[in-house]
């Protein structure tokens, strides 16, 4: 049980963070799409964009950004769409090596196995 006081809250409502948008259909982003900054934050930028740009100097998955900003993935996707549109970040989409079927290829899975064994 943890107490959450007003201290943890901010007066910003989510719709003011997204300018009233609740979804973006322009860019498909998976939970595990990796985001990488392509530029430094500029003055006057909204603070979430600044934080994303700082956070993503090394690749960070969408779901991690969401956890870090304490914001829903949908909202993070909207924020990311803005940054992707202006080229400030780039996205590395997941590739499962699946060729036509839902199952990844054997080669791909062998690599995964090697990685797991090396843990």
């Amino acid at each position: 049980m943890s107490r959450r006081l007003l201290d943890d809250e901010d007066p910003d409502r989510l719709y003011t963070v997204t300018g009233g948008r609740s979804r973006t259909d322009a860019i498909a982003l998976d939970l595990v799409t990796l985001i990488v900054s392509e530029s430094e934050p500029a003055p006057g930028m909204q603070s979430e964009h600044v934080r994303i740009l700082r956070m993503c100097r090394r690749p960070v998955a969408v779901v991690e950004i969401s956890a870090e900003l304490a914001m829903p993935v949908s909202v993070v996707k909207i924020l990311l769409a803005d940054l992707l549109d202006t080229g400030r970040v780039s996205a590395r989409h997941p590739v499962s090596g699946a060729a036509g079927s839902s199952l990844p290829s054997g080669d791909f899975l062998r690599k995964v196995l090697v990685g797991l064994h090396n843990l």
């Binding site: 006081l5 007003l6 201290d7 901010d10 007066p11 910003d12 409502r13 719709y15 003011t16 963070v17 300018g19 009233g20 909204q46 603070s47």
Partner: peptide, 25 residues
């Protein structure tokens, strides 16, 4: 109505204000 127990940064002040009006967009 509320007391904030920490300083509120200007961005949040402005968004907090915008969020309470109809035509914030």
């Amino acid at each position: 109505g509320r007391r904030w127990t920490k300083p509120i940064k200007m961005e949040s002040i402005l968004r907090g204000a915008m969020g309470r009006i109809g035509a914030y967009q």
